[in-house]
């Protein structure tokens, strides 16, 4: 009995306190970044101004005036949105084919697709730059969008496949009876039924595109540079620059973190790859 009484006491007081403690601890670095973004560079490193300080918008004004924040942000939106759409255009039909008309090779094809994700980017970076410069696509939206789509394609096919697999085949077959062709099946039956799954796949791909830094930094200079490039350019190793850095960082991750909050439930379902029910 002693154990039972103890554990219930833990449930009432210990669990909430501990859980809130852990939650706040994990959130603290983000909170700290946002807080620091409202300090001047000088205030940001003074111990006496850790918590109490005069808030200022100086860093944000500076960022939009001197660093051309909106151009980077616009490029990020253009590439992430287009790459997400393109990825879905290719992956929805592929996942449809694999889920409803599997062949003996389907399983191996899926495995192979995932294994292309393990190809180290660094190993093929130089040939890519060589090719891109050769065809004159270096530092263009088209190149960034293509690369972002390709690196996310395997994950998208996997996620969609696991969602589509849950849909009873009979429903799709019923459409065939009514004389609907393949495109009709996808457009009128599959997409409405699997809307939740497609939306969460799109979200995850969008987040990965937005956060991608390896390729976007190395395949762009100015014209197609995204927010990750802006961060790269603002990470001077020493000196009084915490306020400025925090403002740029907050502006770069803010939109995606807020989006993530609203969609966390769907995202979690998608990320489990159907292996966790």
């Amino acid at each position: 009995m002693a154990i039972v009484a103890q554990s219930s006491k833990f449930s009432i007081y210990g669990r909430p306190v501990l859980a809130w403690g852990v939650g706040l601890m994990f959130f603290f670095p983000i909170f700290w970044m946002v807080l620091t973004s409202f300090k001047t560079d000088a205030d940001a490193v003074k111990p006496e101004n850790l918590i109490f300080f005069t808030p200022t918008l100086e860093n944000y004004l500076n960022m939009t005036e001197n660093y051309d924040y909106w151009r980077f942000a616009r490029n990020s939106v253009i590439s992430a949105v287009s790459a997400t759409i393109f990825t879905l255009f290719v992956s929805v039909p592929a996942a449809y084919a694999m889920a409803f008309n599997p062949t003996r090779a389907t399983k191996d094809v899926l495995m192979w697709m995932l294994s292309t994700k393990m190809l180290p980017a660094a190993a093929v970076l130089y040939p890519m730059i060589f090719l891109a410069k050769g065809i004159g696509l270096y530092d263009t939206h088209i190149l960034v969008i293509t690369v972002l789509s390709l690196i996310n394609l395997p994950i998208a096919v996997w996620m969609l496949f696991t969602y589509f697999k849950e849909i009873p085949k009979d429903i799709i077959e019923a459409g065939k009876m009514d004389g609907v062709n393949t495109w009709g099946e996808i457009k009128e039956i599959l997409v409405p039924l699997a809307w939740g799954g497609i939306a969460s796949t799109a979200l995850l791909v969008f987040i990965f595109c937005w956060n991608e830094a390896y390729w976007t930094v190395r395949l762009t200079t100015i014209d197609a540079a995204t927010l990750s490039k802006l961060i790269e350019g603002n990470r001077a190793p020493e000196g009084l620059f915490f306020g400025r850095l925090s403002a740029v960082s907050t502006a770069a991750v803010g939109p995606i973190v807020v989006l993530g909050w609203f969609c966390q439930k769907q995202l979690v379902q998608g990320l489990t790859f159907g292996a966790v029910k």
């Binding site: 987040i207 830094a213 960082s249 993530g260």
Partner: peptide, 15 residues
Amino acid sequence: VRVLLISPFFVMPAV
């Protein structure tokens, strides 16, 4: 607490 906990996952690796 769930929302607080998941936040780091969305942060750009460079940031």
